[in-house]
Design a binder for these strands. Structure first.
Length: 320
DNA sequence: CACTTGACCTGTCCGC
DNA sequence: TGCGGACAGGTCAAGT
């Protein structure tokens, strides 16, 4: 679920909290979610200070002064939850599904001022209830603040590795350019998209080796913006159409970062606010609703193995 | 080699 | 009410 705008929102938020924090202790389930050997954690994470929080594609990079980096991919349901260690300030945010009596919250931490990042699930809407059963790792800092890594579906992972080796990860070597970097021009976009001339344009947008950071939400939104059917074969698209797609893609990515990303179930940014992009979305999860341009009812189909939202009137399959 | 599909997971939702 | 199955999607491995 977290795509480029969500991970960037998380990066911005964590950048306000983490630099300078010194790691006091770490606990994890030692499974796939955080597979490092305990001795490496002892040597390179415990006692280290965080120097920077970076992002590449959908990957978060938390740099340490041990010259190691914590590399985190949230995949679909991963979250990073930062909990301040001081000034406990009880909050009562109720689940929308039920009114949980406080007495049932047996896992309340002593500190309750928390900031949650990333994709979530309904049980997460009770702020202050951590760790929960999706918690995979907890990093505690010397000032008693904590960073929780939660992931309901265990697709995400966090890995500690030497900073200098991060660019050598297979994913990092293969991943395409950042679409919001200044030197990512229309012609570079067209050339990279055209590398997969026989594929559907949606499959190519989702291909991280073509360009970095686009997932299902922003693929659908940008194709609607450019009036291109997601099944259109890349080779049949004109330069003009691809330029429109470039413009639409950059516009939706920028708008979403401005809105703090997309909140599906729940998700808040550094200021405790939900990402609001989905309320600006034109097609994603809006099947059955009228198209904002032509009022035709939006539909949901399957393209490139993904649920795909489009306007059947504005986005017709290109006929060569 | 280029491209597509399935596996990995768990929680939710829908139909019977 | 409960149960089975489809579905959600980022990425990699396996298949066509």
């Amino acid at each position: 679920m977290p795509e480029l705008p969500e991970v960037e929102t998380i990066r911005i938020g964590l950048s306000g909290f983490l630099p300078g924090k010194q790691v006091q202790s770490v606990c994890s389930d030692n499974a796939r979610s955080f597979p490092n050997a305990p001795k490496d954690v002892d040597e390179f994470l415990i006692g280290a200070k965080i120097t920077d929080v970076r992002r590449r594609a959908k990957v978060l990079l938390i740099d340490l002064d041990s010259v190691y980096t914590l590399v985190i991919h949230l995949k679909m349901t991963g979250q990073l939850v930062f909990v301040q260690g001081t000034a406990p300030k009880p909050q009562t945010v109720k689940s929308k599904t039920q009114n949980d009596p406080p007495s049932t919250n047996r896992h309340l931490l002593t500190t309750k001022t928390e900031v949650r990042f990333g994709a979530g699930h309904p049980s997460d809407s009770l702020i202050g209830k951590l760790p929960d059963k999706s918690t995979r790792a907890i990093i505690e800092f010397k000032d008693a603040s904590k960073l929780f890594f939660n992931d309901q579906r265990k697709f995400g992972w966090a890995r500690l590795m030497p900073t200098i080796e991060v660019p050598n990860i297979d994913f990092m070597k293969k991943v395409g350019p950042e679409p919001l970097e200044a030197d990512f021009t229309q012609s570079i976009f067209r050339n990279r998209i055209r590398r997969r001339a026989k594929s559907s344009v949606k499959a190519v947008l989702l291909d991280q080796t073509v360009l970095a950071g686009v997932g299902n939400i922003y693929a659908d939104e940008s194709l609607w913006g450019a009036k291109i059917h997601p099944s259109t074969i890349v080779g049949t698209l004109s330069d003009q159409k691809l330029n429109k797609l470039y413009d639409a893609l950059l516009a939706v990515l920028r708008l979403s970062i401005e809105k703090g990303g997309s909140t599906d179930k729940n998700y808040v940014n550094a200021e405790g606010k939900k990402g609001s992009y989905l309320s600006f979305a034109n097609v994603f999860r809006r099947e059955g609703q009228p198209c904002a341009r032509c009022s035709t009812l939006l539909i949901k189909v399957r393209v490139a193995g993904r649920g795909t939202h489009l306007c059947p009137n504005c986005q017709k399959v290109a006929t060569p």
